[in-house]
Amino acid sequence: MSWFLALFAPVFGTLVSGIDRVVRARMQRRLGPPLMQPFYDMFKLLDKRPMMVHKLHIVLGVMHFMALWASIALFMFGGHLLYIIFTHLLSVIFLILAGYSVRSPYSHLGANRELLALFAYEPILILMAVGFYLTCGSFEVSVITSNSPAIVSMPLMFIALLILLPLKLKKSPFDAPEAHQELCGGVEIEYSGFFYEVIYVSKMTEIIFVYALVFLFAGQNILLGIILVTGSFFLVNAVDNATGRIRIDHLVKKVYATAFVLALLALGWISYV
């Protein structure tokens, strides 16, 4: 089962992304693309003539995907939550370096914003891992998923994660790192054809990583997990449709003012009350 989940995580991510696009279109009273649209996009990208800016750029992009996949695999095999978060950090750093490695203003701006976004969410992910440790007694995902739901003892931490979701999924109001209208995608701008496909797939894989974190809050209760994931999925899409983009410095301030404080409160609540 773990093998299956880890191996096909990109495929599931693509599927979720397809549902995501349809749901968003329906929320705007549009028909929206077919459910399998992301797959069509991928096959089309395979068919394009390959082009690249330089070698290092491509290699770092591929390593970004590999590291992200590795972190998901660690997750599915029930590894240590801190190692998972830091492997994910490694993958984001690869992407940022890829953005920096080309002399393109958009790519640089995107990488800068990605770095600031990393600065905003990384501490909260760590605090969340510590929260799981305090409620379940271990950092191991396998132990956390065999415990009672963690959301009962730390609802505030769950709200903090909900605030992070748009940031990780590159959705409004926290989509400044990608910002299709001003930066044309930020770090991913210089990739094309097959190489863009790698970045595209890793975006889909990221979705799985994020919702896996949401699922973790349900512990052993799979039904509750499905409810949490579906609920947060619709919530994120509704917020995406209802809000505009905020500036990157506001993003950092707002995430610290809300999610970080909530995470600390949750930790204080678990430890001392």
Binding site: Q28, G32, G185, I189, Y196
Partner: peptide, 21 residues
Amino acid sequence: APKYDLERFGIINTGNPKQSD
């Protein structure tokens, strides 16, 4: 935009020559 909704054919306005057809 939503009225004609070209996205139902999978059409996206990318704004980036390297990823467009």
